[in-house]
């Protein structure tokens, strides 16, 4: 069967762009293949893993299960749009500083899910962060550093200079008989 093509104006990271694509393609495919925005990752493709998470009208959704043809007129945000000028978004810098990524494949989706949470709630509890990330799988980190990085970024965003992540978050758990600062 021949493919049905369409041309739509998609507003990605604040910038409207005309883009032509096959009408059955998902937003994930169009972002990566037509717009070259490969920060959004292909994962399970079935809605289970969350690594393809983007924000549509501020809400985290799965770009693998969203038809791009449906996205005209809506605000699409990807990880490429998180930087503010030349500055990393606090979530990004906290993830980097704490080593809250190992292979990094899940990171873009988690950053966006966290960004949506912090836009609604600037001081989320640990439970609220866990709930907000319950649609994002990470098979490397065990999530601890991710949760700590989000708490730290939340503190920075609300201007809480006093907040410091625990030493163990920065240096890892101390070796037996040593203080974290000595390691």
């Amino acid at each position: 069967m021949s493919q049905q093509s369409t041309t739509r104006t998609l507003r990605v990271n604040g910038e409207p762009q005309q883009v032509a694509f096959a009408v059955h393609h998902s937003l994930l495919e169009v972002l990566r293949e037509e717009l070259g925005l490969t920060g959004t990752k292909h994962g399970c493709e079935l809605g289970e893993c969350g690594t393809c998470t983007v924000l549509i009208d501020g809400k985290p959704v799965l770009s693998c299960l969203e038809l791009a043809a449906e996205c005209e007129g809506r605000s699409i945000e990807t990880v490429e749009g998180m930087m503010q000028g030349n500055e990393l978004h606090p979530l990004q810098s906290c993830f980097a500083d704490l080593g809250a990524a190992q292979c990094g494949y899940c990171t873009p989706g988690i950053l966006l899910a966290a960004q949506a949470l912090l836009a609604e709630n600037d001081s989320p509890t640990r439970d609220q962060i866990v709930e907000a990330l319950s649609g994002n799988l990470c098979r490397c980190t065990g999530y601890h550093k991710i949760l700590e990085a989000i708490e730290w970024a939340a503190a920075q965003l609300r201007g809480d200079d006093q907040y410091q992540p625990p030493d163990s978050a920065i240096y890892g758990d101390p070796l037996p008989g040593k203080q974290a600062a000595d390691v």
């Binding site: 809605g47 969350g50 809400k59 985290p60 799965l62 969203e66 899910a113 319950s134 649609g135």
Partner: peptide
């Protein structure tokens, strides 16, 4: 049910 992302869709 499901995940936050799916509940948004």
């Amino acid at each position: 049910a499901a995940t936050p992302q799916i509940r948004n869709m």
